[in-house]
Design a protein around this nucleic acid. Structure first.
Lengths: 215, 215
DNA sequence: TAGATTGTTAATCGATTAACAATC
DNA sequence: TAGATTGTTAATCGATTAACAATC
């Protein structure tokens, strides 16, 4: 029995592939801004430092987006990659912990261009509660659960000290959100229906230190 | 002819391994704080969500740090992993671009505990130059080269908008530093004697978006 | 048509997992 | 000694690279 053309094949879609998609998206947006209509895997690769074969393989695992002998239509490919990444819709996000990092993230312009709406900020410090960061009012963490539900927040960003991270994660999960972006340098336990991405900044710096040390 | 015990073997030391070392280091420091003397790969793995086999393999690629039937001495292993990562010395670092992100990084407490000394901040905005962030004075980017040399800065952190990142990188390289930690969402070209680590925050968030979108 | 470039299969490379001998 | 746990080799799994037919 033949597989229908639309059937998902057993292609890669590996973690590595998914981590490269945002890079493709970023570069396609740039190309779009430059007024480029068509781009080849060769040119995409040159701009990103990735081999053209890799790019074609990555894209082909999600569908046939290109035209043989021609290349990829920038607008079309950007829309397709955006659809795959879920960036062509709007996600409501919240930041918990409005310290220096929380403030920096609240002001992060890329969120907006990627379709993320910052709809709530939380902190427990009375001096911070009630202030505004990037036009969003800081709420008391005590009210986290009701506000997350009310404002239909799907993604929570943890920017509190490591010692409080698990507790905050528990509250976020309890409030029913879908994903957590964790900046606290600690392993957080969540039910496996919740997607978690860890962003431990000390890894990047340590890796740099390693490579400089070893010549 | 027998290989001397000290000879480097052809073991992995893969990128993946090196990226896990900082996690081991972090967990060992925590264990040390808890007063734990000896830890098994089993327990380390439990705390990190990594298999014990993986941990033993990673560590064994750098030497024999454990005791069969016993485990690893926490202090000793932490020192060894720190040595490998180059964290048991002091690196002088500078941040270029004192916007929200630059300020957050300047206040990042983990730098200190990892042995990084923040010795310079740079910006081009006259309103920012001369102010102090976490006790460090902000200098004019114009003087970057001479200050980087003078203060023996080995690592530079780029926290400027994407459009200026390459230009800043060129100046840093010209000043003779060894490594760059790049937060600008753009590919930077440097000579291959310079190690560069890219920290594109939109990747983490896009990856989260992808996984939530696909059920 | 000739040249260009994709999509896909096969070959290679690298990383993880399993198994177990060595040994504390 | 018996039990525990490392370090290492072999087996498996996954990801990248190479090659090329399909086709614009």
């Amino acid at each position: 029995m033949k597989q229908p053309a639309s059937a998902k094949n057993s292609n890669s879609k590996s973690k590595a592939t998914i981590d490269r998609l945002p890079l493709y998206f970023r570069t396609l947006r740039l190309a779009q801004d430059e007024g480029i209509d068509i781009i080849s895997s060769e040119e995409l690769g040159r701009r990103l430092g990735i081999t053209p074969e890799q790019i074609r393989k990555d894209l082909a695992s999600f569908g046939q987006f290109g035209k043989k002998g021609v290349g990829y239509y920038v607008n079309e490919l950007k829309r397709n990659v955006g659809d795959i990444l879920g960036l062509n819709r709007h996600w409501n996000i919240a930041i918990v912990g409005i310290g220096h990092l929380g403030v920096a993230l609240a002001n992060f312009q890329n969120f907006v261009t990627l379709g993320f709406n910052l709809v709530a900020l939380f902190d427990q410090d009375p001096n911070v509660i009630g202030t505004r960061v990037n036009h969003v009012k800081v709420e008391d963490t005590k009210n986290l659960k009701s506000i997350v539900k009310e404002r239909r927040i799907q993604i929570g960003i943890i920017a509190v000290p490591a010692a409080f991270a698990q507790e905050v994660a528990d509250q976020l999960v309890d409030a029913g959100l879908r994903g957590i972006w964790n900046f606290a340098p600690v392993k957080i336990e969540v039910p496996d229906t919740i997607k978690i991405v860890n962003e431990d900044l000390s890894i990047g710096l340590s890796s740099l230190s390693y490579h400089i040390t070893h010549e």
